[in-house]
Amino acid sequence: MAVEIRLPTLLRVHAQGNSSVSLEGSSLREVFDRLIEQFPAMAGQVITAEGSFHKFVNVYVNDDDVRYLDKLDTKLNDGDVITILPAVAGG
């Protein structure tokens, strides 16, 4: 099944300038593995070598932060949108 990953400006340089990428996968882990296969420079950017999310990165599936879903095991459905955003302050 196909899902879309939307990349923040500062990660696009690692994905040949693409702002969004369409990939196949039934879980978030699978999709991130394929993202790195396609764009090796993305390795270590969103997910650290230890396998956790980068401290200042938030990942959302259909607008919901996956830390409160099933993290990397979050199941995906056809047409889901994955959004990656850097952590910023408000106030």
Partner: peptide, 19 residues
Amino acid sequence: PPSGEMVDGLRSLDDGYIP
């Protein structure tokens, strides 16, 4: 709330901020 992407002010992910 959406933060305007043009004004997130980040040069790299390590510039991120968590209060």
